[in-house]
Design a protein around this nucleic acid. Structure first.
Lengths: 199, 199
DNA sequence: GTCTATATTTTGATAGAC
DNA sequence: GTCTATCAAAATATAGAC
């Protein structure tokens, strides 16, 4: 990488670099325990002024981060819904995605599941009202309408299903469940699916 | 104690009053968004100095709060375990307690389920390692040992069961599920129990 | 675009009068 | 035990040189 430049040359920092570093710090220590100085140092420059070249303020970093994650999630879910017709298939692929992300991008999942976003982004949409989650809720509505899922309030179906899934992921992310996410996926899917499927 | 109030307007504040107010504010706005000034005003005095008569610092308030809640929960669970022998009965009473608390003391449940405690109390035991939750995990161990619950890792049984329960409560506390907790309890119990019972 | 340096604000915390 | 007043520290944010 550019570690050789450190002595001879000023580090030039990109917007994306700031976002990556901020995500890691927010996920690990939380938004309020992460100062701009922390971000500044972690990104390899010596002054917060460099950050302000890219972002209006600390909150704007979190806003961008949140937006990026939701956008990416939304695109993945669009793709899944396009490629699958049945709720069972769509949900299974979403679960697959979330478990994969937990192994491969734990910071992202930590930010989504463990960080209380509305505490520092009070003006953003809450997770449940964001585009990707509206789409997920839609899957439950359709699944119930089509008789694939048992007949109950779609939001309750969502709650039971993702109660199992996201609590499992949470236990993995906190280290309480010690193995990689992948090894818990099959059983968690069965339990979650069983909670909502029409039998 | 003196029952006569002086004709000065000075408010005398008790330790318990501070804890109640702090709980409400922490639950509503979060620890970091709650300043000592907020607590001071909410408790009805004009200066933070009054708070420091009772607590060493802001963190000490949260520590006391957390300890009190865990203690009270622990006592309730001891009682439940003493009065019931079967895992099904014990778990059902615990669920009953949690749903009741959600209706009657939402601040407490909000603090337990929605607030990320280790962000501001890094030296306290995490929820899962606290006395009441160790006891709950014990219930799952015993239930599996006795063949009442299906044979799986006790921690996974815990995860599935409380995934459903606590996510349901969370949705109630955030207002996404709009009715009182009581009306969701029976079904949530069935789903959660069904996830772990031996059939 | 980063640097040094500094301004500004907030908040946690204390001293001493009453 | 509360009050006025104030301190100290930390963090956000900016100005101007290079």
């Amino acid at each position: 990488m550019d570690k050789e430049k450190e002595n001879t040359q000023k580090k030039v920092v990109t917007q994306d670099e700031i976002l990556q570093v901020a995500l890691k710090l927010f996920a690990k220590k939380g938004y309020f325990n992460t100062s701009l100085i922390d971000i500044t140092e972690a990104v390899g420059i010596k002054t917060p002024a460099g950050i302000y070249q890219h972002f209006k303020n600390k909150q704007a970093i979190a806003t961008a981060l949140y937006g990026n994650i939701l956008d990416s999630l939304s695109i993945s879910i669009d793709d899944i819904r396009r490629r699958n017709r049945k709720a069972s298939e769509q949900l299974r692929e979403i679960v697959d995605l979330l478990f994969k992300l937990t192994d491969e991008a734990p910071d992202v999942m930590q930010f989504l599941l463990l960080v209380k976003i509305d505490e520092f982004l009070p003006d953003e949409k809450r997770l449940l009202d964001s585009a990707p989650f509206l789409k997920i809720k839609k899957i439950f509505q359709n699944g119930i309408r089509d008789g694939e899922l048992r007949s109950l309030d779609p939001l309750l179906a969502y709650t039971y299903f993702f109660g199992v899934i996201s609590y499992t992921l949470k236990m993995i992310l906190t280290g309480d469940l010690a193995k990689e996410a992948d090894s818990y996926q099959a059983q968690a899917w069965l339990v979650a699916w069983n909670a909502v499927v029409k039998k």
